[in-house]
Design a protein around this nucleic acid. Sequence first.
DNA 1: GTTGAATCGGAACGCCGGACCCGGTTGAGG
DNA 2: CCTCAACCGGGTCCGGCGTTCCGATTCAAC
Lengths: 182, 182
Amino acid sequence: MDKPVLRADARRNRAKVLAAAEEAFAVDGLAVPLDEIARIAGVGAGTVYRHFPSKEALFQAVVVERVEQFAKEARELLTAEDPGEAFFGFFKRVVKQASANRALCDALAETTGLGFNANAGTGFRSASQALLTRAQAAGAVREDIDGDDLRALIAGCLAAERYSPESRHLVRVVVDGLRKTV
Amino acid sequence: MDKPVLRADARRNRAKVLAAAEEAFAVDGLAVPLDEIARIAGVGAGTVYRHFPSKEALFQAVVVERVEQFAKEARELLTAEDPGEAFFGFFKRVVKQASANRALCDALAETTGLGFNANAGTGFRSASQALLTRAQAAGAVREDIDGDDLRALIAGCLAAERYSPESRHLVRVVVDGLRKTV
DNA sequence: GTTGAATCGGAACGCCGGACCCGGTTGAGG
DNA sequence: CCTCAACCGGGTCCGGCGTTCCGATTCAAC
């Protein structure tokens, strides 16, 4: 936990690497070669490794940041008037954002870890769970769904979206399936 | 299109390779090294390449066979009494079978080609489309869904299933979402 | 301006996996 | 039985990518 005061150029390069990684991962996911990221950042591969111990760590740093944003949104929605609307809005928003970001898709596809299931995703887990529970209590969402199911459904929507990006129906099917059948 | 009458041992080896590939791909998907398949088949890597021009071609051969089975089932269900039941039964069955078969998941994940969208999948496409149309005509399935959406939903269910294999709810959510809301 | 340590960059390494090749072997026809 | 073409096997080549290393360079303190 030491921060020995990074040199100015080092700080700059670290930022450039992060920006380049965010961009490259968003387009091509984990498949992008590390050299490519270094090239975009205008930096050598060695420099990337000075700041991040491995490609995986860099990827995780990028993904975690994004997931934390989702968690923050979820927490803010907890005080919304209509619990059902808040929940479904959040759901759609996450799917829409993530489907435009290959990095998040890949992180989710990895069953072990990096995604919403990682330790770093704790904030997201608890916040989305709260959102779900509140919507269920309000009678807007069917009861036989828990937080794990919710994340699995998000992953499923992402896959469907990637498979057929032009159709907007898919998320709606899932959303309608989630609604409480009165 | 010449079949110069394969020698007896060649025929045997070809069958062994196909069986081994089916097994290995089902467990580990495309990730399995070709050497591993050769080892399971009790055969050298060169022999595999004598029968299939590339790893991809072997994979495709295995997947296509399975997809054709699905297509056949779909055609048989076209004469069932209850169009809705036939459709949903087929849907669930495909998802269940494919989720236990990593090869099919990988084939679907590839947006370009190998899966239900490949030329080889024409039979599946037309048969499942017919099943869907019939169910819609009977008022069992919502109207704003076409064949592409259907395949995308299958892909989505597979992803969700893989993400959280223990929960049976996920497919039910999608199925309920597909039902016509009267 | 001088100094030396932190940082940079990209060349080099090692690994892994797909594709190919060639010396030995096997099987079917004469 | 003999022959030879087809076939087998695994050793080898090749490209790609993550990682590491080291000489050159740059920053900042004195």
